[in-house]
Design a protein around this nucleic acid. Sequence first.
DNA 1: CGGTTTTGACCCGCGC
DNA 2: GCGCGGGTCAAAACCG
Length: 284
Amino acid sequence: MDGKEKMDPTGSSWRLGGGDEFFFGSDKDSSILSEFVWNIPAESSGGFGDSDRIDSNFGGESSNDYVSVSAPQRTTTEQTAEEEKVEASVSWSSSEDKPEKSLASGDSSAKLPAETASKARKKVQKRIRQPRFAFVTKSEVDHLEDGYRWRKYGQKAVKNSPFPRSYYRCTNSKCIVKKRVERSSDDPSVVITTYEGQHCHHSVGYPRGGLISPDLASFASRLSPSVHYPAGLQISQENSLHIVQSQNVPAAGKIGEVQESISSQPQVDQGLLGDIVPSGMRNG
DNA sequence: CGGTTTTGACCCGCGC
DNA sequence: GCGCGGGTCAAAACCG
């Protein structure tokens, strides 16, 4: 049971999903966040799901990139009015993930009998890892509204944590985005949300200029290794992320502006308009 | 009635 | 090769 410790809760960084991603622990991020002066106007707390355009390419080419973004957030306070601000730490990572996930999606095989299904399952065992990023959020609600609709498809007890981990999948059949939600065993008030993949559609919400997770997602997804960001971030290519805090971020309540700045990077968004899926996956 | 959640079983990767 | 832990499936239950 304790033969293999995959995680290192005591470390300054956490390893998840086989060590693909790093992000700052709650204890650390608090200090980090304090260095990051991401001021989000209260007016922007209109809602959690206002991402308009989630279109960006994960740097699929880059082998190991780690990006981390930290930013104080405001919850939608749907049911947690006392939760004024949510501190979030975002980290993103990508690895050689091939979009052959369609196989596992079970598109070709319509409905197989239980027998065949189990067999088919054996064949379809290529678990492809999508680029993903996680962010730590201080919130009382574990499942934060992010503008997308999710369907829970599993829940598992986490080893070093008394809290279970929930698995969600985007309800959009064409969207392969998944996310995991779990509470930090170290700080129950912290929720760790891990997104995997990219939405190929717009959120169900509407643009309101709020800072919400999809925005962060899109934001983070645009980041490329060894690139300087207006947010004062610098990403190292050495499987470890470095946050070079230096000044206030211009994220004056609108990550979208930041996206604009970032979009000037190569291979970022080619005006795909939501079709971030690799050309190979795009089935007209 | 359709969509979502629950939950146990199954599968896979990894470390030993 | 084995055991463990994580991730996913799928049927049943649940809910609006």
